[in-house]
Simulated assay, not measured.
Amino acid sequence: MPCPFCHPENIITSNALAYAIYDKYPVNSGHILIIPKRHVSDYFETTIEERTAFNELLEECKELLDYQFKPNGYNIGINCGEVAGQTIFHVHVHLIPRFKGDMDEPRGGVRGVIPEKQKY
């Protein structure tokens, strides 16, 4: 099966090394993926230049989401490896807007990847 991120559609914004699209299966309205143009499976295989490109787009996309959706917070995450939940092996950064009341108890944030460890 061809990589869905190697031939992107509906790009929101881009720079020389990365681009951003809306997630096809969003956690919340405005959920964005930031993806390197180079096919690379894992964040730890990216270059410093690609990481800088990710960060530039994270800032740009946050401004866009602040304007369009006015979220109360954000989660930023990367799944590295199948056991971490990665299903598309072309690295991508999730920028997920969070809204007051979108879940009953958000405390623990990204710790929720292992639900019994979220509450502490």
Rank of each mutant, 00 (worst) to 15 (best):
P2N: 09
P2Y: 03
C3S: 10
C3I: 02
C3Q: 01
F5R: 08
C6V: 04
C6T: 14
C6N: 06
P8N: 02
P8A: 04
P8F: 01
E9I: 09
E9P: 04
N10Y: 08
N10L: 07
I11M: 12
T13H: 12
S14G: 07
A16Q: 15
A16S: 15
A16Y: 12
A16C: 12
L17K: 04
L17A: 09
A18P: 01
A18H: 10
Y19P: 02
A20F: 08
Y22E: 07
K24I: 15
Y25H: 15
P26F: 06
P26S: 12
P26E: 13
S29E: 15
S29L: 15
H31A: 08
H31N: 07
H31G: 12
I32W: 00
L33H: 05
L33T: 00
L33W: 07
L33K: 05
I34W: 03
I34Q: 00
I35P: 04
P36A: 04
K37A: 11
H39R: 15
V40S: 12
V40L: 09
V40M: 08
S41W: 03
D42C: 13
D42P: 08
D42N: 14
D42W: 00
Y43A: 00
F44L: 11
T46D: 01
T46Y: 00
I48M: 14
I48G: 15
I48V: 15
E49H: 11
R51F: 13
R51N: 14
R51T: 03
T52W: 09
A53C: 11
A53T: 01
F54M: 09
F54A: 10
N55T: 03
N55A: 05
N55E: 10
E56N: 14
E56P: 05
L58V: 05
L58M: 10
E60D: 11
E60T: 13
C61R: 07
C61Q: 08
K62C: 05
L64H: 11
L65H: 01
L65T: 02
D66V: 04
Y67R: 09
Q68I: 08
Q68D: 11
K70E: 12
P71I: 00
P71S: 05
P71Q: 06
N72C: 05
N72R: 07
N72G: 02
Y74R: 02
Y74A: 09
N75M: 07
N75R: 07
I76P: 11
I76Q: 14
G77N: 01
I78C: 00
N79T: 01
C80H: 09
G81M: 06
E82T: 09
E82S: 11
E82F: 10
V83K: 06
A84E: 00
A84V: 14
A84G: 06
Q86H: 03
Q86V: 06
T87H: 11
T87I: 14
F89A: 03
V91H: 03
V91P: 00
H92C: 05
V93M: 04
H94W: 05
I96E: 10
I96F: 03
P97E: 03
P97H: 11
P97S: 01
F99P: 04
G101M: 07
D102Y: 04
D104G: 09
D104W: 03
E105L: 02
E105F: 12
P106F: 02
R107K: 14
R107W: 14
V110G: 10
V110C: 10
V110Q: 12
R111Y: 14
G112I: 06
G112P: 04
V113W: 06
I114V: 13
P115C: 00
P115Y: 07
E116C: 15
E116L: 10
Y120M: 07
